[in-house]
Amino acid sequence: MLKYRIITALILIPIVIAALFLLPPVGFAVVNIVVCMLAAWEWGQFSGFASRSQRLWLAILCGLLLTAMMWSLPAYQQLDHLALVNGSLWFSLAWWIAAFVLVVAYPGSAALWRNSRTLRLIFGLLTIIPFFWGMLSLRLYGYAENHYNGAWWLLYVMLLVWGADSGAYLFGKLFGKHKLAPKVSPGKTWEGLVGGLLTSALISWLFGRYAPLDVVPSTLLICSIIAALASVLGDLTESMFKREAGIKDSGNLIPGHGGIMDRIDSLTAAVPVFACLMLLVY
Rank of each mutant, 00 (worst) to 15 (best):
V194H: 12
A211Y: 09
L193Y: 02
Y210P: 06
Y210I: 08
G208C: 08
V215Q: 02
S185G: 11
R209E: 13
P217D: 01
I203N: 04
S231N: 09
K173T: 10
L202Q: 03
G208L: 04
G192D: 07
I203L: 13
L213A: 03
A211T: 00
G192M: 09
L174W: 14
P217L: 01
L198V: 11
K183H: 14
L220E: 12
P186F: 03
A181Q: 05
K179R: 03
W205I: 03
A227Q: 11
P212Q: 08
V194A: 15
A181Y: 00
K179Q: 00
V215R: 05
L206P: 02
P217I: 03
F175A: 13
T199H: 01
L213M: 05
I225N: 04
I226W: 12
V194F: 14
S231R: 07
T189P: 04
W205V: 02
I225F: 04
H178E: 06
T199I: 00
I226P: 01
T219Q: 08
T189Y: 12
V216H: 15
Y210G: 06
K173V: 14
V184G: 14
P186V: 01
G208M: 03
S200V: 01
Y210E: 10
L174Y: 13
T199G: 01
A227G: 10
G196I: 07
R209Y: 13
L174P: 04
S200W: 09
G187Q: 08
V184K: 14
P186M: 07
P212L: 04
